[in-house]
Design a protein around this nucleic acid. Structure first.
Lengths: 138, 138
DNA sequence: TTAAGAAACAATAATCATTATCATTATTGA
DNA sequence: TCAATAATGATAATGATTATTGTTTCTTAA
């Protein structure tokens, strides 16, 4: 019961995600998987993303707007640019220590944590600097 | 232009949020504010929540499901129970240090961060322990 | 005080992301 | 090969949020 059957669509979704490091949304995944399966439906994409996430084979990243997905499951954090909204990986040394620290004050059982950082990515930072130089010049 | 006008509805939304520590959703806020303003519309609630958040007077918490709101803006983190889905406050000593740590490896400009912890709250933890004792007894 | 302009309102339609339904197709194990 | 059943594609439904519209309420300055 509840046994899992192979599906080529699911395989394709997972291998697409493994090839990407930019945390695509369900819609982006849909657009790309359609190159190989022109008739795949968006519902199938969502269904398989939920299944893969429940198996721990991918990670769902809940952010403002549409959820994003990542097949690279080694622990790491994410940086979200408030200007261009791209999601970048960010590995922080010893970040996991905060969980033990948090557990000290907390009567429940902490099983995991996620950290999201916000700000300007290097590209948008440069753009902003250029703009402020222009403003100075006036 | 773009000056802010007082509104009793906005005041009511904010004072309701100040009275609560359980991070209600827009819908919960709507239900409660209706006690004082029976004709208020859900759109007004959303509009004012967005406005207050942009002013920094409240915080929007993006979680799975509906967004939640918090008028207690002192830095603190949140714990989300994976069983009952309630959101609890959690203050972690020195948590802010991870942001400097993260900046070390990152070429952009990190301006903020949020941490969410997951697991079982103390109530659900106890329930689960009772259940597993019953299972042992069989 | 009152008329003009601006901001906020209530009501509701529209949008967007996601989930559910259902008839059909694909996979798997006997 | 064939029966059992999981997965699919198409599409309807849902839930959260945003946008639109016409009306009301403030504010301000004549």
């Amino acid at each position: 019961m509840a046994s899992l059957k192979y599906s080529r669509q699911r395989e394709c979704i997972k291998s697409f995600l493994l090839s990407r490091y930019d945390h695509p949304t369900a819609d982006t995944i849909y657009m790309n998987v359609r190159k190989e399966f022109p008739n795949i439906s968006l519902g199938t994409v969502y269904r398989n993303l939920a299944l893969l996430a429940s198996l721990g084979e991918i990670i769902k990243i809940t952010v403002d707007g549409a959820d994003r997905f990542d097949a690279h499951v080694e622990p790491h954090s994410h940086f979200i640019c408030k200007n261009c909204h791209q999601v970048l990986d960010l590995h922080v040394e010893n970040e996991e220590l905060i969980q033990a620290q948090a557990q000290k004050n907390f009567p429940g059982q902490i099983e995991g944590h996620v950290v999201q950082y916000f700000g300007l990515c290097s590209t948008c930072l440069k753009e902003q600097q250029v703009l402020s130089q222009h403003a100075e010049a006036l």
